[in-house]
């Protein structure tokens, strides 16, 4: 469960203060599917980065699973990300010299999980995302859709409570994008919390809850 209270985030760009987030208060329940939309510069990516503990707010508090994570150190944040948050990026961010299976394994390697357990989970994830045949391929031997499925499998490998996807379809054609959204929706149906940032209204509309941001503030919050 995610609870943001009065989150402020300002950047200094060329000597000028830019208010990326203004007093954002937001609660995301376990198992929710949320899309964040808005024009570029509206602060939707900044909001996602703060939820993902990649960025820190200038003011406000952030509670993740009833724990205040606002004041944690960098390494503590890294551990929380490892355990609780799965990331899916627009540009996939796969390690080019590792195979699909090794990329999926990476978060578990960083966490020091037992190799036997890792192998078991990797096999399961490969099967689940239809990648078994591609397990030994490197990213440059995979299609965009396959790359994003590898990235989603990687995000799921630590069984996090939350999946954060920043323009997950932004680098894919329409058809493949629909397919990737299908995968994310299945995650939600299986009880996962999925937060998707997108500027594509069609993608955004597929979520159960839709947040609209303008100028760093939440403009609308629709459900159903």
């Amino acid at each position: 469960m995610i609870r943001l209270t009065g989150i402020e985030r300002t950047f200094t760009v060329g000597g000028e203060q830019v208010h990326a987030l203004r007093a954002v208060t937001l609660e995301i329940a376990q198992g929710e599917s949320l899309s964040i939309m808005g024009p570029s510069g509206s602060g939707k990516s900044t909001l996602l980065n703060i939820i993902g503990l990649l960025d820190r707010p200038n003011a406000g508090t952030y509670e993740l699973d009833r724990r205040d994570v606002t004041g944690l150190t960098d390494d503590e944040l890294a551990r929380v990300r490892r355990e609780k948050i799965g990331f899916v990026f627009q540009f996939f961010h796969l390690v080019p010299r590792l195979t699909a299976a090794q990329n999926i394994e990476l978060p578990m390697v960083l966490s020091g999980i037992d190799p036997a357990e890792r192998a078991r989970r990797v096999e399961q994830l490969l099967a689940e995302y239809g990648l078994t045949e591609r397990s030994g391929h490197r990213p440059d031997q995979l299609s965009g859709g396959q790359c994003q499925r590898v990235a989603i499998a990687r995000a799921m490998s630590m069984r996090p409570g939350v999946i954060l996807a920043d323009e997950p379809t932004g680098n894919l054609d329409r058809h493949t994008g629909q397919e990737v959204m299908g995968v994310l929706e299945r995650l939600h149906q299986n009880g996962g919390t999925v937060v998707v940032v997108t500027h594509d209204p069609e993608i955004g509309a597929r979520s159960h809850r839709r947040l609209r941001m303008i100028d760093g503030a939440v403009a609308s919050d629709e459900k159903g």
Partner: peptide
């Protein structure tokens, strides 16, 4: 650099 960013996002500590 972007790979380092990824590793950090996936939970690699400074030390790692």
């Amino acid at each position: 650099t972007s790979e380092i960013g990824l590793l950090r996002a996936l939970g690699a500590t400074h030390r790692a």
